[in-house]
Design a protein around this nucleic acid. Structure first.
Lengths: 338, 338
DNA sequence: AATTTTTTCCCAAACGTTTTCGCTAGTAGA
DNA sequence: TCTACTAGCGAAAACGTTTGGGAAAAAATT
């Protein structure tokens, strides 16, 4: 019993035409009840299922959606995928994942690969390299082909399409405001380099919060990190300044800062309050628990999938940008309000 | 410029037959140089790419591999995916991900969905429910259909197929031995319920290590947890016993135990040494860093993909089980050897 | 009995490829 | 002038499905 059975094989066995079999399986009244029952019984016996590929070719719909992300070993992206998969599955779609591993070339190659008929639409978060190069021809190309595209998290304004983001600036603003309100006077920032959109926006939020509270900016207390691998060396100098609060744009930066602080004999939160971004496992299980700006990856994924599937099935032409709310999760790494 | 161009359209534009276009694009000498150049230029201009679906139908090869895992928001599974994707991409395959979310039914549905022509082979890690129910008909079915299948991590012996696992028992044995050798006398175990294969095996390793070192087993210091969500309540009673060492079968159990210990005024590692399993982000960034048995998810994924693709392309008939080595990563949650 | 209607089924096209085979001219050899 | 060969191209089948348009046979109507 090797390989799946096809309509043709059934038709040969039962000595009817292929179309008769097809219609019989759809229970079409065009076919006599007798024939229908015979065919259906036979199909059931041999566990017939229509071939998806043939259906895709015929219908020009694959019921697949392509997702391209820089990295998957990353709580945020994993949770987005989870949200996408959940929503897609409910609507009868499968999810094809490609990792760009932060490489522009891989992003382009993967897109071209998938664009040749394998999927009905894209969900993508750009690589840092793409954001740096500002080369979006591959995105424009699939859009021109009439393939729906939804961007999330790392987006670019130059491309017209549906987008799902969080309000990075406001999330940062709220976090820094919290630090100010619990009494921090010298707040350090640990961010990424500016061409990464989320890093830039969070930095803006940081600066705006300081400005609105009339706190002067200390440029020496602003650190912009390119490579997460050796962030430790970049962060350490921050503690040469007298800081009592830190806002970091991700969990790793925040936890690394906390560890360095502890090594230097500083207590958290008594001496230094720390707030991170992205409410992942690390924040939850850190000790003390990390106060953090939560970005709901699951919801972002669901929303992106929902928007994409709507575009796929309705072909409407208006592009929306959905902003998913952030929320400050207060744990023990910040002093409590008095 | 909507939609992709097809051979048919090119042939119509240039007033040659479809077959001529196809051959010209393949640079076949059967076609005159002049025609070839004309066709190739036209194809390039319109950015022609063969339709993957049509190719799949023709070649009866999709160049897709299906991956079914219980969960993706989980460092281990995410890193396995990463390994699979890497290897697959290199060999020209795409990866379709389905999440079973620990539900037997979803596992079955997803498998049937993908088995109908969408993919060339499966990589799967079973849900706990499947392991509990011991219902493997869906696995056997795809194998009978002649579709290659590779299982990893949560496997079952009853099914004949390629497998990739770590030596859970030995990993646990080594960890517990380490605890014993650094002087622990009362070692607690935090495991999962027994029907989860990895939990059972790690429990076995724990017991064997104790036995080999002539340490009596204290049943009260063995905790088996069903639901990770409220593991805190289950773990707390462990500290009513005088324990000086803990072996936990995953990171979350270990970190939760560490947090509870600290709340009870116990110092780590002076009073209690803790070892976890799965070297993820949590272990690395915990404080103190968690000593842990590392299972290299990336390698497991790569190995699984490699085995699967070999089966897909070579159709050999012998089933292998690949054991990926674990390694004890010593950090600060265990006393140092004196 | 002749005509119409209904039932029941089959044919063929289409989706986009690849590939085998066959056809038509033209050229070379005899 | 005939045969043989080659260059260059096209037709058609195949992958597995759906579906509109018929066609033949059966049943109903006149």
């Amino acid at each position: 019993m090797k390989g799946k059975i096809t309509l043709k094989q059934i038709s040969k066995e039962l000595d009817v035409s292929i179309s008769t079999v097809s219609k019989a399986l759809k229970n079409s009244t065009e076919i006599s009840l007798e024939t229908r029952e015979k065919v259906q019984a036979f199909a059931k016996l041999y566990n017939y299922r229509p071939n998806n590929i043939a259906l895709s070719l015929k219908n020009r719909k694959t019921k697949n959606i392509g997702v391209i992300i820089p990295e998957i070993v990353h709580h945020f992206f994993a949770s987005v995928i989870s949200g996408i998969e959940h929503e897609a599955n409910e609507k009868g779609y499968n999810v094809i994942i490609c990792l760009s591993t932060e490489s522009f070339d891989k992003e382009v190659i993967n897109m071209e690969m998938l664009a040749n008929g394998s999927i009905d639409g894209f969900i993508i978060s750009l690589t840092k390299e793409t954001q740096m190069l500002k080369d979006y021809h591959h995105l424009q190309e699939v859009i021109n082909q009439g393939m729906p595209l939804v961007m999330f998290d790392r987006i670019v304004d130059e491309i017209q399409c549906d987008k799902v983001v969080i309000d990075d600036k406001k999330g940062a603003y709220d976090a820094v405001t919290e630090l100010i309100e619990i009494g921090c006077k010298n707040i350090g920032l640990i961010s990424t380099v500016d061409y990464v959109s989320v890093g830039r926006l969070r930095t803006e939020g940081f600066l705006e919060a300081l400005k609105d509270h009339n706190i002067p900016v200390n440029q020496d207390a602003i650190i912009k990190i390119e490579d997460i691998e050796n962030c430790r060396e970049n962060i350490a100098p921050l503690f040469d300044h007298k800081i009592d609060g830190i806002f970091a744009v991700n969990e790793i930066f925040a936890l690394t800062a906390m560890n360095i602080a502890r090594e230097r004999g500083l207590r958290i939160p008594e001496d230094v309050s720390v707030i991170g971004f992205t409410d992942g496992e690390l924040s939850k299980y850190a000790s003390p628990g990390l106060t953090t700006v939560s970005q709901n990856g699951l919801l972002i994924g669901q929303e992106a999938a929902r928007m994409l599937i709507e575009k796929i099935e309705d072909e409407s032409e208006d592009y929306k940008t959905k902003i998913v709310k952030t929320k400050l999760i207060v744990r023990k790494s910040t002093k409590s309000r008095s």
